[in-house]
Design a protein around this nucleic acid. Sequence first.
DNA 1: TAGGCCATCTGGTCCT
DNA 2: AGGACCAGATGGCCTA
Length: 179
Amino acid sequence: MVDGSGKMRIRRVKANGRERARMHGLNNALDVLREYIPITTQHQKLSKIETLRLAKNYIEALNRMLATNEQPTPLEYAHQLANGLSQTTTNMLANLLQVQPRHLLPPSQFEAHQFFPSTSDNTQYFHPHQQQFLSPTNSSTSTNYPTPSPPQYYVQNSTNPSAAPLQQYHSHQEFEHQF
DNA sequence: TAGGCCATCTGGTCCT
DNA sequence: AGGACCAGATGGCCTA
């Protein structure tokens, strides 16, 4: 602003105030959005960009459930939600859904991590490219659903109003019983 | 300490 | 003319 007149200055100050209010409105909307997505933390809220990414993944996951009329396994669900998220948020998600963070690595890191880290168990692994589960002993197509490793499923924070599809299941057995 | 995230300011553009 | 929206710049705070 070259013109330093009082009138111009007042205009600028008023515009700044409006811009501040506009950004506060945007942030409030983001706070509301955070309440409806299935990650909640006590001490640290999701960043703006991660909130938007996770919300998009969550909508996609819900749409998929509606389209297929099936609930995903926790590992599948975690994979859908973790798509494109940062390492930090992915770890947080893995922790909340009680799956191994290494199972949620993006394709590049997934392969770099060696496809099947251990052959000592019967754990099956979700392949992000093929969008299906493979087992260490039989890497051919697995048609029946796997038994994912985490015995407990996501328990929603009671202060969070979001309707996370898995929150109703409190144990692995209860989850399996639905099918 | 570098990098990520954020709030704020600012000037440009478009719309009413 | 004035408001809304946008993107770039800047500086502060926090964390790995």
